[in-house]
Every structure is written in structure tokens, then in C-alpha cells.
Design a protein around this nucleic acid. Structure first.
Length: 580
RNA sequence: GGACCUGUGGUGCAGCCUGGAGUGCACGCCGCCCUGUCAAGGCGGAGGUCGCGGGUUCAAAUCCCGUCAGGUCCGCCA
């Protein structure tokens, strides 16, 4: 007989644990009234629900319990009479009879129905989140998340990693994402910030000899919210010493494979991998969704010296949309608008038919160009070819976005396709001061073959940074870190960071590295996103107990809110200029 | 900072394009009836600032402008 951990002072077991083998036992359960069905003065059925499910209690009609009342029911487990078995319920063969019903807590009718019969507006759900999470779907999602967390912890422990907690109150390091700021009471005019990630802390742990660190860490970034982004999110944060990129990828893979198996019951096969350059080239993205093909084709060579003005650009990229020849003019205009929003000058489209190409641009094409377009990606009559001509990066970006827009299946559809994207560039773009910006972060180790380009051609330098991507979502990223002062100085110089600035911003880290820094590397990935995909949810709010809206509000608590003057003065904060 | 979508009894919708009495459907809620239901059933009832403000009009849920809230996206997210 297994130990019944669910028995407490108030109950004997969970509602849905009762089976035919319990028949005859006198049992007490606790839960919420899911439904009451009345049949006259002396008969009513009350479904009692707890986290396990429901059990039907047969009570006298005088028992006054309504939906969502919290009750404690003591009754005898009885086989249901012939013909009244409910096969839709796991407990459908039994019921509780001769019941004593104790009302532990009465309840007003809830503001929305909790039975999943209709989809409730998210605004209403978030305002009453404590009720929303009583619903089966949210119970399932949050328990799935707990299973993922648990599997991740076990996987890291099995691989010899030590869980270390790092501070939430940290020092401002002006770099990267906008930080949440916490005013200091004891130090007037000075501030802590909440960490965007434990990046620097974990590198210090490496110096400190914790050669395998992990943490399920909360990260906070004051940036605009999205379906896959909240102010605060949770990462499995990893760092290890005396390792290379390949070791980290293996550690992470083991953790994710375990989590996937715990969540879905199926252990995925090993992950795909491609370089950042390949991802750009074929998918127009650094987070390629491998669930569908529709890859980007390069037609540049066919349009060298073209007469078509729209195609006189360094790069000509195309995608083929199977069956897209049926697209209406307004749908094509929509796609063109999308392309322009993303920075393209325009979008060229070609419908493939048995007679040839149908397009406003067709009459300007040379026969060779027409032939090139007609055979893009194995095109056949009925297909549609979309072409963007621009600088390489922009052409890839725009077509990559169109590819996802047109072809991406819902999150809950299809297989889980994991892919490592490696060899990210060290630098991308230029900031307002004309300095290069770090693609990952300034402590990322350059690719060994490219170090000599730091001074001569920095934009061509690849880094030892890598991302893990699942179904088009960036799960997380990591890198081999710089542990040598000379290389770090050269990278800072390339970034336009002076010695003085570096000392000011990261002095404590650079100082620590002088006392014996092991080679180290790490990774961090988002548990919210991973769990959302496992749950088949398009939106990470569905796997977060108390999320915020897109404008950063908590509809339940009303946060953010003003604080009393006394509290504000204590924190040495000036009066707000605008009352809210 | 920008684009688009949404806002109608407690909940989910329809009504809006083409202005004419808060009209309809489903769920929930309240009361009564009902001894085997399980999305129980039957009868009756209550419940509305059509997000808010302004404009056009004889007349606005409906058309126009603004605004607020929610959502999706761009920018942003080292």
C-alpha cells in the first residue's frame, strides 16, 4: 500500500483518486463546488473539484452549496447505480453517498465561468487571475512548468552543477537592456538595479572556483513587452569552467532533452545545428523555424547588369510560396506593406502559370531572368515567387519575415525542431556615437580564426556565441567568455570603450580576472518560452501565474502605483511632476 | 515612438458596413417545479452610461475626431 501523501488533517485523499476499489470506505474530501444539479426536494448532485479532478457527491436537496463554494464532504464511496456511470469522468463509476457537507467557505458567483466552455477575454482573466488559474488549462500549464523546472534541476545536478543564488539588487552597468532601478534609502541619490541577467555574477563564480554553476534565475529588463517577452522572465542560467562551446552545448542539450521528455513524454532526437551565416542565407533569420522549408533562394547572379531598375541591388533573394498564385491583389499588397514596414523598398511578385509569369514586372525581364524566376526552388505552375532586392542583410531579413508570416504553423502544430545557431558575428551595427555594438556582450570570445581581424575588419569577426532555437523562437544564448586581459582590451577597443570606461563599468569583473580566471563559457535559456511551446501556447502569459499586460500593468494588483509621500521622501525621490 | 485589431447586461457573441425605441442568441445569476443527473430538464424573473469625451444629424451602439484599456506587430530587447 503506497503512502498517501495527500491525506491531511482535513481530508483523506484527492477527489479524483477514488475508484471502485474504494467502494464501501467512508472518505472525506475537500474542494470547490464545480457544479450542482438539482432533482427536487431530496436529491441533488454536487461535483466537488480539487486539483486532481472531480467526484460526484449525492446530497439532500436542502444542502445549500453553490458554484465555487469551498466544501468538505464526508461520504461513503458507492458504486453508481446501473446505467448512471459517466464514462467521461475518471471517477465516473463511483460517487459519494450519505454525505455530510461542511461549508468551509461560501462564494459569490465568479465574474466568469471556470468551465472552459467559452474563451474569456484576457483582460477579465488577468483582473481575476486567482480564479483564472483554477481553470483546468491553467492548472495544467503551471504544473507543466513545475515539471520542466524539476527536470532541469535534476539534469543539472546529474551533470555536477551546483546551484548558487545571486543578488537581485545589483550595481548599474550601463550596457544592454534598460534596467529596472531601485532607489537606496541609506545612500541618498544612489541606486541599485535589478539584474537583466546574472551574467557578471556567474563569471565571478567561475573566478571563485565554482566550475559548474547553474540557477533558475529571474531576469528583469525594462523593455517593451511582446507575446514572448515579459519584464521579468525566468532562465536556466549556466556557466562552467575548463570547457569549450561544445561542452556547454552538450550540458544544455541534456537539460532540454530531459525537460522535453518530462513535459511531452517523448525524448527528442539530437538537435540540428547551423552557422549564423547559413541561417541568414537560407532562413533570413537568426532564429530559423525548421518546421517548414520555403527557404530563401539567391538569384543575385542572374541579375548582374539587369535592365530592371528595381533589381539593381547587391542581393536578390526569393522565396517560393506553393500554391500562392491564387493570392488576391489585396493579399499581395498586404505582403508588400509588410515588406516596406521592415525597410524594403518594395516587393516583387511573380505568379507562375502554364503560360509564363504573371507580374507587373514581367515585361521588363530578359529571357534568362524570366527563366531564373520560373525555376526558383523548384517552382511549378500555381506557385508564387516573392523577390526582394536590396543590401544582403535587409533582403534576408525581409524575406525571412515574409517566410514566417506566410508559412509559419501555429506553435502547437508539428514537431519540435531544435537547432543550434553558431558563429554569431562579434559586432553588429553602429551606435549613436559611431561605435560598433556587441552582438552578444562585450565579454564574448572571438572565433580563434578571426582574432586578427579585430583591428582590420571587425564586422567580419565571428564570435564563439551560440543560440538555441526551437520552432522559430529564440530559447536562449551563450558564449565562450574572454578570460585573457589582452584579448578583452582589443575587444573593448573595437567597441570604442576606453580603459577608463571599462574600469568604470566592469572594473570589479576585470579586477577579479587578474587573480586567476579559468577559461569559461556559459548559456542561459528562457523557461517561459520553452514551457509555452511544450504547452502549445502562443503566449508566455499562459504559463506565468501572474503576468503583466503589454503596457506593463498588473491588472490584479493595479501595479505600478504611486507610493505615499513619506515613503517617497525616505527614498530621496523628488515629487512626481505628473500625477497619475 | 509607430502601425493594425478589439471594447455591447456577470460571461461569450450577433447587431455597426447601409443611422430610426437597448433588439436578439447562448451561458451564468435569482425564484419555483422536478428522486439518477453529469454542459441535467421545465416554467418564471432580474440584470445595460453599447469603454470614455466631443462632433455631424431631426435622430448615433452604428458615421467622424480625440482619448483610455486590452491584444498582435515594428522600433527596442548587449
Amino acid at each position: 500500500m503506497p503512502i498517501n501523501y495527500e491525506a491531511t488533517s482535513l481530508r483523506d485523499c484527492l477527489c479524483a483518486s477514488l475508484t471502485t476499489s474504494d467502494v464501501g470506505k467512508k472518505i472525506t474530501v475537500c474542494g470547490w463546488v464545480a457544479k450542482r444539479r438539482e432533482h427536487g426536494e431530496h436529491l441533488a448532485f454536487v461535483d466537488v473539484r480539487d486539483r486532481s479532478g472531480v467526484i460526484q457527491a449525492v446530497v439532500d436537496g436542502s444542502v445549500d452549496v453553490r458554484n465555487e463554494y469551498v466544501v468538505r464532504v464526508t461520504g461513503t464511496v458507492t458504486l453508481r447505480p446501473e446505467g448512471t456511470v459517466n464514462e467521461k469522468l475518471v471517477t465516473g463509476e463511483v460517487e459519494l453517498t450519505d454525505c455530510v457537507v461542511e461549508i468551509l467557505s461560501a462564494a459569490e458567483p465568479p465574474p466568469f465561468q471556470l468551465d472552459d466552455r467559452v474563451e474569456i477575454d484576457e483582460q477579465i482573466r488577468l483582473r481575476h487571475r486567482f480564479l483564472d488559474i483554477r481553470r483546468e488549462q491553467m492548472q495544467k500549464n503551471l504544473r507543466l512548468r513545475a515539471a520542466v523546472n524539476s527536470a532541469l534541476r535534476l539534469a543539472m545536478q546529474r551533470q555536477g552543477f551546483c546551484e548558487v543564488e545571486t543578488p537581485l539588487l545589483w550595481a548599474p552597468t550601463p550596457e544592454g537592456a534598460r534596467e529596472f532601478v531601485v532607489p537606496s534609502r541609506l545612500h541618498p541619490g544612489e541606486f541599485y538595479v535589478l539584474p537583466q541577467s546574472p551574467q557578471i555574477a556567474k563569471q565571478l563564480l567561475m573566478v571563485g572556483g565554482f566550475d559548474r554553476y547553474y540557477q533558475i534565475a529571474r531576469c528583469l529588463r525594462d523593455e517593451d513587452l511582446r507575446a514572448d517577452r515579459q519584464f521579468e522572465f525566468t532562465q536556466l542560467d549556466i556557466e562552467a569552467s575548463f570547457v569549450d562551446q561544445i561542452d556547454i552545448m552538450e550540458f544544455v542539450s541534456q537539460a532540454v532533452l530531459d525537460a522535453a521528455e518530462a513535459a511531452t513524454g517523448v525524448r527528442p532526437k539530437d538537435f540540428d545545428a547551423m552557422t549564423w551565416r547559413e541561417a541568414q542565407d537560407r532562413y533570413g533569420s537568426d532564429k530559423p523555424d525548421l518546421r517548414f522549408a520555403m527557404t530563401l533562394q539567391d538569384l543575385s547572379e542572374f541579375f548582374v547588369g539587369t535592365q530592371v531598375k528595381a533589381f539593381s541591388a547587391p542581393t536578390i533573394k526569393a522565396i517560393r510560396i506553393e500554391g500562392g498564385a491564387t493570392y488576391t491583389r489585396s493579399r499581395l499588397d498586404q505582403l508588400t506593406d509588410l515588406a516596406k514596414e521592415l525597410g524594403a523598398k518594395g516587393l516583387a511578385w511573380f505568379k507562375i502559370s502554364h503560360e509564363g509569369l504573371e507580374s507587373p514586372l514581367d515585361r521588363f525581364l530578359s529571357p534568362a531572368e524570366r527563366e531564373a524566376i520560373s525555376s526558383v526552388d523548384g517552382a511549378k505552375p500555381g506557385d508564387l515567387v516573392l523577390i526582394v532586392a536590396d543590401e544582403y542583410a535587409l533582403a534576408c531579413k525581409v524575406l525571412g519575415a515574409l517566410r514566417v508570416h506566410v508559412g509559419s504553423p501555429p506553435v502547437s502544430d508539428g514537431p519540435h525542431r531544435y537547432v543550434w545557431v553558431t558563429e554569431f558575428p562579434m559586432f553588429e551595427g553602429i551606435d549613436e556615437d559611431g561605435n560598433l555594438m556587441a552582438a552578444h556582450h562585450p565579454f564574448t570570445m572571438p572565433h580563434p580564426d578571426d582574432i586578427e581581424l579585430l583591428e582590420t575588419d571587425p564586422l567580419a569577426v565571428r564570435s564563439q556565441a551560440y543560440d538555441l532555437v526551437l520552432n522559430g523562437w529564440e530559447l536562449g544564448s551563450g558564449s565562450v567568455r574572454i578570460h585573457r586581459g589582452d584579448i578583452q582590451s582589443r575587444v573593448f577597443r573595437a567597441l570604442g570603450i576606453t580603459n577608463e570606461e571599462a574600469e568604470n563599468r566592469f572594473g570589479f569583473l576585470l579586477g577579479a580576472f587578474k587573480y586567476g580566471a579559468p577559461p569559461h563559457a556559459g548559456f542561459a535559456f528562457g523557461i517561459d518560452r520553452l514551457t509555452a511551446i511544450f504547452a502549445g501556447e502562443e503566449n508566455i502569459r499562459e504559463v506565468i501565474a501572474f503576468p503583466k499586460t503589454q503596457s506593463g500593468a498588473d491588472l490584479m494588483t493595479g501595479a505600478p502605483k504611486s507610493i505615499p509621500d513619506r515613503q517617497r521622501k525616505e527614498l530621496h525621490l523628488p515629487a512626481p511632476t505628473k500625477a497619475k
